[in-house]
Design a protein around this nucleic acid. Structure first.
Lengths: 188, 188
DNA sequence: GTCTATAGAAAGATAGAC
DNA sequence: GTCTATCTTTCTATAGAC
């Protein structure tokens, strides 16, 4: 039996990982199934043994953040809620996240892209969004207005940063958002 | 002489208007030149008398906001800077902007889309972004950190709102961003 | 399950008539 | 300047061999 269930699971995970990375960096339409599969080390035909359509993969790739995303990391351990939140902010609002991160945040990298897609994809986005909001809510004792404003700033900051052409301006934007977000967290 | 210079100018403006609307609502890749031209009341072939490539039109459509965008409106007249800014915020962070506006803000509607494109397009986006930042800076006496955070919240709020699947959550997001932005404006 | 080959559709850009 | 017709490429999805 050359192909086990476990082998299939691994192939599926490889495809999801490639999808997360490539869709985020280039957008749904600019990634072909050929691109995806060769990045995952397979060829086109194998794709349909795992997913019914390209769009279905898109949805699954977004949802995979819930299981594998940075948001699940509890390190550094033993620090306070506020400190953890500031640690999160610092990594999120960074040039590294924008330029190099192989598994970036789909909320920021795919906002516009998702808005133009079918309900199942937007539903996946909404689930991930709720997760981020919930997480921030847990780590700072501010009302939900402030929490939602902070997430909007984070996602906005990173997505705008990716669109801008001027790296100085990007640095300024990221650091401004970080400062103001920290101020909002510490208020009260 | 059936085709005057003025007639050409008008055709060009029609194409730009259609491009602004359609690109914003569906994204660059999901709008064909056929779609654009029939929306503008012409056929495909005529396109190339006005623009060299689809991408060139994209850039021009984004830049056209500088001349024709809401940001140039000075109404309601005779009100204070802060009041004008709050008026802007209220319209920007609204379901009407997200759902019905025929000429929406490309900064919010096209963030992710622009990030995946060539330098000339990103340059256009950057110009429009600077314009919005400058405008907000002029109307509130806050440091540039707060100004950039507010723009990130605005653009983030609207673009996320377009991606979400749950209209209650969208309302909550928009109103939260508006409240916190107003609070930041009034501070000090 | 994965491969190669291919069908079928869509879209960007060009050519030539009016 | 605008039209119709067409070339060409690209890509999703399927078919059939191993």
């Amino acid at each position: 039996m050359p192909y086990t269930l476990e082998h299939k699971r691994i192939s599926r995970e490889k495809i999801l990982k490639s999808a997360w990375s490539l869709f985020s960096r280039r957008g749904f339409d600019n990634v072909s199934i050929d691109d995806l599969m060769s990045d995952a080390g397979m060829t086109r035909g194998a794709f349909y043994a795992h997913f019914g359509t390209k769009s279905e993969l898109y949805r699954e790739a977004i949802l995979s953040v819930l299981a594998h995303g940075r948001l699940n990391q509890r390190e550094p351990d033993g620090i306070s809620d506020k400190a953890w939140l500031k640690f999160l902010l610092n990594g999120y609002l960074s040039r590294g996240h924008i330029e190099k991160e192989p598994s970036p945040c789909p909320l920021a990298f795919l906002v516009t892209d998702v808005a133009n897609r079918e309900p199942p994809v937007r539903d996946a986005y909404t689930q991930v969004y709720r997760k981020l909001v919930g997480l921030i809510e847990q780590h700072c004792d501010q009302d939900s207005d402030v929490v939602m404003a902070i997430t909007a700033m984070m996602i906005g900051g990173v997505s705008i940063g990716r669109a801008l052409d001027d790296s100085e301006l990007v640095d300024q934007l990221l650091s401004s958002v970080e400062k103001v977000a920290e101020r909002l967290i510490d208020e009260k």
